[in-house]
Design a protein around this nucleic acid. Structure first.
Length: 738
DNA sequence: ATTCTTTAGTTTTTT
DNA sequence: ACTAAAGAAT
């Protein structure tokens, strides 16, 4: 046994890593070396010859976490870990279902619906049932279905006692049938179906139980009921081949109860798996004492805790700095000033995080950072595989794999436009309903199956026949092409490329389509199975690591949720106001306040050396100025840990930093409708800006509102007040700056 | 079939 | 205040 593997570990870490074949719950506090323990445990088991990688199953919550864990194991251990199963719950269940699709009652090419696809399917079903979507909002139906599935219930299992729920149940049933007909599964279905597969199929169950000797689970506090039951089933508690289940979690960092995570699973785990001992990792290697003690004091206010207190061998460090701002702009400019000072002191920008409760808060921060010319990156937001043009392209690919996919068909049957309007679509849907078939089958039937395939690539590209032809061409003779070529040809054949080449302002979209080809190429490189079906599953399950633009030293902006698991030298936590944090909506939910407090705890424990807490007396929200009182969480942190940078009571208040209404209130006679937040230069001439006042020979003075195009095609929209708002070609309009 | 107008929703989010 | 999506008008 190499000694380096176990060097520098504390007693509890060592105990967890070297534990013999038994199930254990590891309560791992923030910054206690949780990931290290998990990866070292796996490396230790393999290196000491207790188990082959083939018999290990490791579960994480995100693909990112799985990837990181694999990298770290490889760094510890020069051993081939191919046989090991490591991934997310959904990824692993997907793997099971692919391997045993027949036993699971699925077509070989079954596709995965993401959240948006699922909602679209539900809307479609509600429409076909002529349901009033005012009375039954699609989102609520979606929530009902996912909730049922995540507690392991099929439509047949749900018991309802009121007429409203009884309707919801009908929709659930219709949705189930529709998904089966189309051969698609949603995220919850991946779990439920593989759970049912293992329940029903004794041979498979025994096979996997025998195979997986050691099961490890990260972020266990985030598991929902179905995931827990899946785990229990696979582990085979109480049977001859019961696996040793090693779960790591922190009840204080459970912040996903709102989407079904159940910390009760931790207590149940102790009971169901006969846990004799809980190992607590309580030494924190991240933060200075003041930060940690403040966080501990805060979380003490929660009653539902398993009990655990973090300590550090580091010194107390600095107190937490609290700033009470006049308004949100003032708060942002305070943050900018402090960032500048930190940067001068040598703290890299990438080691500074700006955290907030809600995404809407990033706006003012971004605006201020941009004005201050500080580079920043915002995490979260639109992902690559969720972009409209990418989803269109994926829909075509789905139709190649499985034309029965109504969802995909509806998305692109008239995109690019082929002259198929609402009328013809309705006819098609009626036909499909009558024959109880897919839309594709109905479309085929309508065009006359024989004729279309041959004539398709000659001329007739419009109408339903044109669409059928396009798909026929894609489905015939492309089977043996490499994935990237399929994607490339599809982009041309579908007309997507052509469409985005002609439409103005589509440079980004075109680039994304090219990027999709690149994604296919690198997917074939990395994945074992480079098939189209595998690629489509990848697109659904790993909606996208947004890692573009990395490398540059930039500030990190994200929600507190997104910051879990990360650490920074300095953290700015803004918006500490009642109503915002804790969020007002949380107060109506059961245990909502406790979850908000855990969120606060997570935010505080991200900081290694310096933690700023800030609040604004007034803040723009939904277009209205709101006046808030300080967050109760500030009261829950003892004064001895805090250093107020401005009087907490508001007396002796200075307005020096604050924006007054003069900045916002004065408007010229001409109203600026749309402001570019960055006041960026028009790319055309370099001298024109949005918001700039210009003069026109005939229309007089006006303000530039917007622009379009570039080069000789560049146009600007100018509001001339009395003469109205006009679009003008820059080349001819002869505008002059005023 | 395109384009304009109205309306709803706006805590957190991965798979 | 702002956006996206549904509805109405051309």
């Amino acid at each position: 046994m190499s000694s380096s593997l176990l060097a520098d570990l504390n007693t509890q870490q060592l105990e967890a890593i070297t534990l013999p074949h038994q199930s254990v719950l590891v309560l791992a506090g923030a910054g206690s070396g949780k990931t290290r323990v998990l990866t070292t445990r796996i490396a230790y088991l393999i290196q000491s010859g207790q188990v082959s990688p083939f018999s290990i199953l490791a579960v994480t919550f995100t693909n990112k976490a799985a990837k990181e864990m694999l990298t770290r194991i490889h760094a510890l251990l020069p051993v081939n870990t191919r046989g090991m199963w490591m991934g997310t719950f959904h990824g692993l269940c997907h793997r099971l279902l692919r391997a045993h699709y027949q036993e699971a009652g699925l077509p070989q090419t079954f596709q995965i619906l993401d959240t948006a696809d699922q909602l679209a399917t539900i809307k479609r079903i509600l429409k076909s049932l002529s349901v009033d979507d005012k009375r039954f909002p699609p989102r609520q139906v979606q929530w009902f279905i996912n909730n049922a599935k995540e507690s392991g219930q099929r439509a047949a299992d749900v018991i309802v006692d009121d007429p409203f729920s009884s309707h919801l149940l009908d929709f659930y049933l219709a949705y189930e049938q529709q998904c089966n007909r189309e051969g698609v599964v949603d995220f919850a279905e991946l779990l439920l179906r593989s759970y049912e597969l293992l329940t029903r199929n004794e041979i498979l169950r025994d096979h996997y139980r025998e195979r997986f000797d050691y099961i490890l689970v990260d972020e266990f506090q985030d598991t929902n009921r179905l995931q827990y039951n899946w785990l229990k089933l696979l582990a085979g508690v109480g049977t001859k081949h019961a696996a040793a289940v090693f779960v790591v979690g922190d009840d204080d960092q459970s912040i996903y109860a709102f989407r079904g995570a159940d910390t009760g699973n931790m207590k149940d785990f102790e009971r169901d798996f006969g846990i004799s001992k809980v190992i607590k990792l309580e030494q924190n290697y991240r933060s200075h004492g003041n930060i940690l003690d403040a966080a501990n004091a805060l979380i003490e206010n929660n009653t539902e805790r398993l009990g655990k207190n973090l300590w550090t061998a580091e010194g107390m460090g600095e107190p937490l700095r609290v700033y009470r701002a006049f308004n949100d702009f003032d708060e942002a400019s305070f943050i900018v000033d402090e960032i500048r000072a930190l940067h001068v002191d040598g703290v890299p920008l990438s080691q500074i995080a700006l955290l907030y409760r809600a995404n809407a808060q990033s706006r003012v921060l971004e605006h201020t950072l941009f004005k201050a010319a500080l580079p920043y990156r915002v995490y979260g937001g639109m992902r690559f595989f969720e972009r409209m043009e990418v989803k269109h392209a994926l829909a075509y690919l789905r139709l190649i794999a499985n034309p029965e996919d109504d969802n995909a068909l509806l998305r692109v049957i008239n995109f690019p436009a082929r002259g198929i309007g609402a009328r013809s679509l309705e006819q098609l849907q009626d036909e499909a309903r009558q024959q109880n078939s897919s839309l594709w089958a109905a479309a085929l039937h309508r065009c006359g199956e024989a004729a279309t395939a041959v004539e398709s690539d000659t001329k007739n590209k419009r109408g339903v026949a044109g669409f059928v032809g396009v798909i026929q061409v894609m489905r015939q003779g492309w089977e043996n092409l490499p994935l990237a070529q399929i994607v490339e040809r599809m982009l041309v054949q579908s007309g997507l490329m052509g469409h985005y080449q002609t439409v103005r302002e589509s440079a980004d979209r075109l680039e994304n389509l090219h990027e999709l080809v690149n994604a296919a190429i690198s997917f074939v490189h990395e994945a074992e199975d480079g098939s189209l079906t595998a690629f489509l599953a990848h697109a659904s399950l790993e909606a996208g690591e947004h890692q573009a633009g990395s490398g540059q030293d930039a500030l990190q902006l994200m929600t507190i949720h997104a910051s879990k698991g990360l650490e920074f030298h300095s953290v700015f936590l803004s918006g500490l106001e009642e109503g915002l944090f804790p969020h007002e909506n949380s107060l109506n939910e059961k245990n909502g306040l406790e979850e908000e407090r855990r969120l606060m705890y997570v935010a505080m424990t991200r900081a290694r050396r310096r933690l700023y807490l800030s609040l604004a007396q007034s803040r723009m929200l939904h277009g209205q100025t709101r006046y808030n009182i300080p967050s109760r969480f500030l009261d829950e942190i003892p004064e001895k840990f805090l250093k107020w940078l401005r009087s907490p009571a508001g007396d002796g208040f200075s307005f020096d930093r604050s924006f007054t209404t003069k900045d916002l209130g004065t408007r010229s006679a001409v109203e600026v409708r749309k402001k570019d937040p960055f006041n960026r230069e028009l790319p055309v001439e370099g001298q024109w800006r949005i918001g700039q006042t210009v003069a026109h020979v005939k229309f007089g003075e006006g303000v530039i509102l917007d622009y379009e195009g570039s080069g000789s095609d560049a146009r600007v929209q100018v509001n001339f007040g009395r003469a109205g708002t006009k679009w003008l070609m820059l080349e001819y309009a002869r505008l002059t700056p005023v």
